[in-house]
Amino acid sequence: MAKIKAFSPEFATAFKEEINRSAVYKQAGKGWKWTVGLVVEAEPDKNFPEAKGVFMDLFDGEARDIQVVSADDAGKCDFVISAPYSRWKQVMQHELDPTKGMMQGKLKLKGDLPTIVRFTRASQEMTECTTRISVAFPDEE
């Protein structure tokens, strides 16, 4: 299977499809009605020279829209999770659990914490969805 470039429009499309394919997310995400922005901070030494954002319109167990946007635009979402590129890569490769990452301050969260905690299962399943995408990472090119 051809690999999809990380944080590209094709990646956003594949991510949306994986989420909408997940019965677990459909159940765990019931009641979620906020936008989520993922801010991927630049790491020039990892061949990721400019920050990027992922905008996620998630509603009631469904991904209505996922797009790659600027980091600034992602930062305007209801919930924003920020981390350097290599941390996101760890998450996508199952090396860092997002819940643990947030507890350790490796992933920075902006937004109502109790709401995120209520949807822990949904966020874990979203991470699972990224691991099911065959991704080409820029520092491995």
């Binding site: 969260l109 914490l113 109790p114 905690v117």
Partner: peptide
């Protein structure tokens, strides 16, 4: 994080 969670809860 836990302190922030309690603060937001309260």
């Amino acid at each position: 994080m836990l302190g922030g969670l309690i603060e937001a809860n309260v």
